[in-house]
Nucleic acid binder design. Structure first.
Lengths: 231, 231
DNA sequence: CACTATATTTCGTGC
DNA sequence: GCACGAAGTATAGTG
């Protein structure tokens, strides 16, 4: 990994066009040829970048460029698309290089899969007397997150999201339409369960007779004793 | 901005839990207290991070930690949420610090907003005699990108995308359903306009009586004389 | 290899 | 400030 602190301007031409005026920034060149341009603010997203695989070509400035104060021009070309990043360096303040090796990668816990496991284990969160039929119930158009049976014996399809918005309601609607064609299952009720449900999604769900359920992950996690196994 | 190359392990506890095993990485500490942890690969997204505003607290290791080889512990605490990042440093290879100042920021051209402006200006791309009613026509379920009137005086709702896929057709369908309930507007025709329209989206649109229109951004940009002002 | 669904999404914009 | 939609979305899982 190569780290350069430099006063530079940047132009990107590819899926769109973008320009960064002259300023001091960090240029990070990774081993796979990708380049990240970071300022001293914002979030984790760089101001501009080139995704790997890419190749970096360094050129001396032409006469006009030198006149404009450019001491070096970097051209970062994507290997797969015709996206291009042109970095015009006006002043270099620092340059370091380090061998980091391959990273072992991130271990996560608490994503949708964990929510699904917890709700399957605590299926009565849906209501008194509910029983689990199965998780990831396969249909022709994809898997239904959870299929259950209510106290009266009716089938219930659950769509699970960390954040519930309209797309999730549309998805559940498609499943319900399909499941209700199966005489062995019909009539199938729908439940839209998420940690947070957006107002518009709630309105749409209600309009389609779908029940909304807000889940408290921490509370459900507290009930589950396997939470401490990971670390 | 502070740049540290170190052998470290990282634990994140917040909206989810995540763990990074011991390895050599770049730690980037920004002026707003945010921290980014980068490996020498992947894309522009860091392995782990803390969003601003945040505060970094550095602590000497306790007896057990020192025994485990830790020379320093960083605790990055989010100021707004209770997200926390704990970085255990085992070996430091490099440390530099630079004053970058405030960045002037990125100038973009070619995103959906530009397409929308161009199509509104060149509304007859939709057809002979079309007139613009307004852009971003607000409804209860969100804004319709462009509302126009055709030569016969009928209302036309346009959904605009850079890349047209099924989601966009679903979105337009919802708008049309709503708009057609309004007797002042009904009947409302739908037009799905994008730089590229996927075959599946085209089929779905046709099935619902929605017209598809492929836009040539460069050509539309060429007509507009304000395109040259940006750079 | 293509499609699909998720994301500690982040980022801008309108209300 | 909140909610919603776009992103050069990126990324991981599955058929």
């Amino acid at each position: 990994m190569r780290l350069v602190i430099a006063r530079c301007s940047v132009d990107y031409i590819g899926r769109l066009r973008a320009h960064l005026p002259l300023a001091v920034r960090l240029l990070m060149v990774k081993a796979d040829g990708s380049v990240l341009i970071h300022s001293d603010g914002g979030s984790y997203k760089p101001l501009n970048w080139m995704s790997p695989p890419a190749t970096l070509r360094v050129a001396e400035p032409g006469e006009d460029d030198a006149e404009a104060g450019i001491i070096e021009t970097w051209t970062v070309q994507s290997a797969k698309t015709d996206d291009k990043l042109v970095i015009s360096i006006h002043e270099r303040f620092s340059e370091t290089s380090h061998d980091l090796g391959v990273d072992p990668g991130l271990i996560k816990d608490g994503v949708e899969a964990d929510l699904q496991r917890l709700l399957a284990e605590q299926i009565t969160k849906l209501g008194e007397g509910y029983t689990l039929i199965r998780r990831e119930y396969m249909t022709a158009i994809g898997p239904v997150d959870i299929l259950a049976r209510d106290a009266a014996g009716a089938t219930v399809a659950v769509e699970l999201k960390r954040r519930g918005d309209i797309d999730g309601v549309e998805q559940l609607t498609r499943y319900l339409e399909l499941l209700n064609r199966d005489p062995l299952l019909a009539p199938v009720k729908g439940v839209f369960a998420a940690q947070q449900i957006k107002p518009q999604a709630r309105v749409l769900a209600h309009d389609r007779g779908i029940e909304c359920l807000t889940l408290d992950y921490d509370a459900m996690r507290g009930v589950d004793d396997s939470a401490s196994r990971l670390f």
